[in-house]
Amino acid sequence: MPQPSRTVFRAAWPIINEQHTPAELIAEATELLPDLAAESGAVLCGPAEFDTTQTAAEAAIPGLEHFDGYVLVATAPATAAAAPPVRAPKRPAPDRLRADAVEAGLRGDDVVLSDAERRAAATIALQDGMTIERAAQRLHVDVDDLVQLLANAPELVA
């Protein structure tokens, strides 16, 4: 029986709350990584390495090209899962970040975003000079709700 070929699984989170140490961010990301890999059809087969020294642009993270800040990047050896699970579309968990959804939100597409994704998209929009009112309009939310969401940032956006 042939051995599955090994590849690399990579995940990234924008660091929007710099009050937490890299160790705290890595600890939280370590817990999330196996589920993220599984959702992507990968099985981790070794420990992850983490890097917090690159900006989103330096790390070339698809979907975070407009984020002007540091990112936590996890890279781990992985294999392809036997068959990706078939799941009905659902609202993402609040602690997961889908870069493609964030980009779609920034474009103003009608996409279901978790609070973490909405917060990341709003942060990027504001860093790019967009007003809070325009960001709220683009993300299809009320301005007051967006202000409250940004004020209640969790420890790690994933």
Rank of each mutant, 00 (worst) to 15 (best):
A136W: 08
A29Q: 08
A23M: 04
I26N: 08
T79A: 11
E39K: 13
F9S: 05
P85R: 14
P94E: 12
A104M: 15
L126D: 05
V8M: 14
S114K: 06
A101P: 01
L33E: 00
I16D: 02
A42L: 12
R98W: 13
E39I: 03
G46A: 02
Q3V: 12
Q127F: 00
V86P: 03
M130T: 12
I61L: 07
A82I: 07
D115G: 14
P4C: 07
P85M: 06
W13G: 00
Q137F: 06
L146T: 05
C45Y: 03
V143W: 03
K90S: 15
I132Q: 14
D128T: 07
V111C: 09
A11P: 03
R98N: 15
R119C: 01
T7G: 06
E49C: 02
T52D: 04
A116P: 03
I132H: 02
V86D: 12
E49Q: 13
Q148V: 11
A38S: 13
V147D: 09
L25A: 07
N152Y: 03
A125F: 05
L25W: 06
R107S: 04
E155I: 12
F67I: 00
N152A: 14
V8G: 02
I124Y: 00
A76R: 09
G105R: 12
V112I: 14
P89C: 09
D51M: 06
L97W: 08
A125Y: 01
Q19E: 10
M1A: 14
A59I: 00
G41P: 09
F9H: 15
N152S: 14
A57W: 00
R96F: 06
D109S: 14
G63Y: 04
G41I: 08
T21A: 11
G63L: 08
V157K: 00
M1P: 10
L36Q: 13
V112H: 07
A42Q: 14
P89N: 06
A74I: 06
V102M: 09
A76K: 07
A78L: 05
A136E: 02
A116H: 04
V111H: 05
A125Q: 02
D142L: 09
A80G: 13
D142N: 15
A42D: 11
A48P: 10
L36G: 08
A81H: 10
A99S: 15
P94D: 14
V111G: 07
V73R: 11
P94Q: 11
A78F: 07
E65W: 01
F9A: 12
D35G: 15
A11L: 09
Q137M: 12
G41C: 05
A99H: 15
P85L: 09
L150F: 02
K90T: 15
R119Y: 01
L25G: 05
D51I: 03
Q3T: 15
V112W: 11
E18H: 07
E155K: 15
